[in-house]
Amino acid sequence: MDSIEIKQRNIILNKKDILEKLDYEEEDIIFLGGSLIEGSINKLSNGMGNKLSDIDVFILSNDIKKIQKSKLDYDKEYLKTQFKRLCSISLDIEIYSKQVILDLIEQLNNCDFNTNIRTFNLLNLPVGFDLNSFTSFIHRFLNGIPVYNEEVFYQISNFLKRDNYFKLMVRLAVNNVDVFYEDAIGNIQNHQYEVALVVARNILLETMKAYIFNKKTSLDRDKWIPLKLKNLGLYDEEVETQYKTFAKLYYEEKLDERNNIRLNVEKIINFSNEIIQKIGQDGGI
């Protein structure tokens, strides 16, 4: 396939034109990602991307230190960034060290989830490279389209143990719920219901994020949680039911009185407990 159709923007991009915009070496790997791409290739991401969305270009560089700083907009040791345009579309170009990414994928594949090590510390990340950057990259990789060295791209894709990625993301989300839980309870006890509501909404989002990952579905932005749930619900009646409860708690309940705010917070906490208990029963934690 030499061209890529971007339905959300009603254009067709030629791979050759994309590559001509990039600086890369023979052994590099290049793929496209982001909401426009994901919304085009993943039925569970239907609705993602719009006429104002950019295309994310990812380059796994065989020798990232060779890249000239003058060609970069942002320069970190293991992640370089450029911004270019093609056919009126902005290209956000992220250049990673291929070796660093491969090392982290191998660590992820070998993760021991039965250890006492905190989830946030399971991977030995290089200095200046945070966990969110890596997991976001993995999400884009899983929902990407290769445009250069495609065979190697698919070799890495086959090497990646997806179940370990999903389990890691479930645990990270549940850990966040635990942190927010005490904050919400403390503010309820202190009658700070408005503050508790803000925290409870974070609990709800992190809970549904854990639920989505437990369903072997990926995302990297909280804003896509409702869309992913709604799309998953088209193929899974249980998810459809949970989405309706989520939507009611997040959008639909009247919060015109302080007592209603407190009740909403308590409902969110109870719903979160039910979902996380179910994830645990499924072996997802």
Rank of each mutant, 00 (worst) to 15 (best):
E5A: 09
I6L: 09
R9H: 02
N10V: 02
L13P: 01
L13D: 07
L13V: 05
D17C: 04
D23G: 07
E25P: 00
E27S: 10
I30G: 06
L32D: 03
N42W: 02
N42L: 09
K43W: 05
S45H: 11
G47R: 07
G49C: 08
K51M: 07
L52G: 01
L52Q: 10
D56Q: 04
V57N: 06
L60V: 05
I67D: 00
Q68L: 12
S70I: 14
K71R: 13
K71I: 12
Y74F: 13
D75V: 03
K76W: 13
R85H: 15
R85I: 12
R85D: 15
L86R: 14
S88R: 10
I89M: 14
I89S: 09
D92H: 14
I93K: 11
S97E: 08
Q99N: 15
V100F: 09
L102W: 08
L104E: 08
L104V: 12
N109W: 12
C111P: 00
F113C: 03
N114E: 12
N114F: 04
N116W: 04
N116H: 11
I117M: 10
N124C: 12
F129R: 13
D130N: 13
L131Y: 07
F137I: 03
L142S: 11
I145F: 02
P146T: 13
V152R: 14
V152I: 13
F153W: 03
Y154T: 01
Q155C: 05
S157H: 09
S157W: 07
F159V: 00
V170R: 06
A173I: 06
N176I: 01
V177T: 13
Y181C: 07
E182H: 06
N187I: 04
Q189E: 14
Q189T: 06
Y193F: 15
E194D: 13
A196R: 08
L197P: 00
V198W: 09
I203S: 10
A210Y: 04
A210T: 01
Y211T: 06
F213P: 01
K216F: 11
S218P: 02
D222L: 15
K223H: 11
L227R: 15
L232F: 00
D236I: 03
E237Y: 03
E237N: 12
E238M: 11
T241R: 12
T241A: 11
A247V: 05
K248F: 04
L249V: 06
Y250V: 10
E253V: 15
D256N: 14
D256K: 14
D256A: 11
E257P: 00
E257Y: 05
I261W: 02
I261C: 03
R262I: 01
F271Y: 09
I275E: 02
I285D: 13
